[in-house]
Structure formats: structure tokens, C-alpha cells
Design a protein around this nucleic acid. Structure first.
Length: 269
DNA sequence: AACCAGGCTCTAG
DNA sequence: CTAGAGCATGGT
């Protein structure tokens, strides 16, 4: 257990922000997964941004700080907000402590294939079932935790997938797992690709269109200039920006849209 | 109980 | 090339 004083970091805001589906909370205690690692994080209520983490200081610095994108200062991104843009200012204020996580490539690929035409709560349910059915078990202090499955683990348990509520997306997921396990698509190697190459490679998978590919690029490849446009962001652009994203926002639009998304979804705009 | 969800594919024109 | 139907299922 280590104590942390963080700034500009709110695990609850991050949990609800629609970029991640497997952060669980019971009271002040949060459980966070990435790859084969599990972290327990306690929010200490005596001060804002005070936490207690279950890992060592060394593991925090070398692994989790990167996952939470804590080495990036978001001030410079927020500064691009135009002075007359009251709506964005309100969104940023609403989502104090939001970060863009650096999540596992394969988990993002499968999770966002599942996400199409589902609500966030429904996505969580499907992903949790998928992990229980296919993922490795980890037992910590007598409690069982399930990791997100690898491609080969999904293929090994193909016959059980129908219990995960995946609907017509099931065949997409099997194809994606196939392409990854046969190395037809190398997710690690795509880290070095240009934005366009990355999106094209991802969209060569059936069931991955421009929106899903953009989410994968933004949430696991740090592509801050890519903007996934879904129903919520579409409504925001129509309502507050006359159907067009201000050009000044293009460079960091990935971060801006996350503020838009979080605000509009939670306030049902 | 309708309606909609962090959309995509496929076909018709 | 664009427009539109069809898609499985769960939350609200």
C-alpha cells in the first residue's frame, strides 16, 4: 500500500467517462484492470485527489502512472478552449480530474466492437460476461477476478460466447481474434504507424468502422488528434457548433471530445 | 412497453 | 458514390 497525492485525477470521473468499461467501485474502493495487472485504489476523502494504491511505488511509477497518463499535463490541451466557448468550459469544469487512459490494444478492439449500438451499461455487462467465460482467473485474498481474455482464449471458448449477449457482433469478435492470433494484424507494431495507416488497418476487420477504429486509436494509441463521432458527439456538434468542429480544436480534438462526451451523456443532452 | 444505445455492413440506385 | 434498411440484445 502506498499513499498518493495526485492532481487533476479523479478515478470516479474516469470510471464514468465511457472510455473504460472495467473499473469497478465499492464505496471508496476501486478495482482497475489492465492486461494481466489488477490495481486496488482507495479514494481518501480527507482531501481532493488523495489516494491509497495497492502496488509498490516503483510499480506505480513504471506502470500505472503511464496507464493513467499522469505524465501528461492537460493544461495545454484545455487552453485551446476558445474564450467565447461557454459550453466547452462548462464540460471541462464538470469533468475535473478526467484523463485519457492508455489501455490495452486488444481489449479496446474487442470492447469497442461490442460497443456499437449498445448503451454504456449494456457494454459493461457484455464485457464482464466475456471475461468470466474466457478470461484467466486470478484469486486475490480469497476473491476471484477475471482478466480480459487474449485472442487465443476467446477462440478456445468460441462455443460459450453465445452466453455473453454479443448478438450479431459475435462473428465480428471471432474474426478479430482470428486476425490477431494469426498475426494478420499486429497491434503492437501499429504503434509506429501513421494515423491513417492505423485506422485503415483496424477497419480491415469486419465490424470495425471509422467510429470504433477512432476509439481504439484514441484510447490505446494516444492519438489525440482523432475524434470518434458517435450519437452524443454528433448532437453536441449540431447543437453547439452549427454542425462543424472549430478548426482550432483539431489538434487535440480527441481530448476535447472526451469532455463533450462525458458531459452530454451524463446530462442527457 | 416502446424506444434507443460510444455503428456497421450490404444492397440498391 | 450516397442513402437506407437491417441488425441482436439489454437498459430505461
Amino acid at each position: 500500500m502506498i499513499k498518493l497525492k495526485l492532481k487533476d485525477f479523479d478515478i470516479e470521473v474516469i470510471r464514468e467517462s465511457g472510455q473504460v468499461f472495467r473499473i469497478y467501485n465499492e464505496g471508496p474502493k476501486y478495482t482497475i484492470y489492465n492486461n494481466d495487472k489488477i490495481l486496488f485504489l482507495n479514494k481518501i476523502l480527507t482531501g481532493p485527489f488523495n489516494y491509497e494504491a495497492s502496488c509498490s511505488r516503483k510499480e506505480w511509477n513504471s506502470y500505472w502512472a503511464g496507464y493513467f497518463d499522469l505524465k501528461t499535463n492537460y493544461d495545454k490541451y484545455r487552453k485551446v478552449c476558445k474564450s467565447n466557448d461557454k459550453f466547452l468550459k462548462e464540460c471541462i469544469k464538470f469533468s475535473k480530474g478526467l484523463r485519457l487512459l492508455n489501455q490495452d490494444h486488444f481489449e479496446m478492439l474487442i470492447s469497442f466492437i461490442i460497443s456499437q449500438r449498445k448503451s454504456v451499461p449494456a457494454i459493461r455487462t457484455s464485457i464482464e460476461r466475456l471475461c468470466k467465460v474466457c478470461g484467466k482467473k486470478k484469486i486475490i485474498k480469497n476473491k476471484t477476478y477475471y482478466l480480459f481474455p487474449t485472442a487465443s482464449e476467446i477462440l478456445k471458448n468460441k462455443n460459450k460466447l453465445s452466453s455473453c449477449g454479443l448478438g450479431y457482433r459475435m462473428e465480428y469478435i471471432i474474426e478479430a481474434a482470428n486476425k490477431v492470433s494469426k498475426n494478420i494484424i499486429n497491434l503492437k507494431k501499429l504503434e509506429n504507424a501513421s494515423d491513417e495507416e492505423l485506422l485503415d488497418a483496424l477497419m480491415s476487420i469486419k465490424g470495425v468502422g471509422i467510429k470504433v477504429a477512432s476509439c481504439i486509436a484514441l484510447f490505446s494509441y494516444k492519438r489525440y488528434s482523432i475524434c470518434p463521432i458517435d450519437v452524443w458527439i454528433g448532437r453536441v456538434i449540431d447543437k453547439y457548433y452549427k454542425g462543424k468542429i472549430p478548426r482550432e480544436y483539431n489538434k487535440y480534438i480527441g481530448i476535447i471530445q472526451q469532455y463533450w462526451f462525458n458531459y452530454s451523456r451524463l446530462n442527457k443532452i
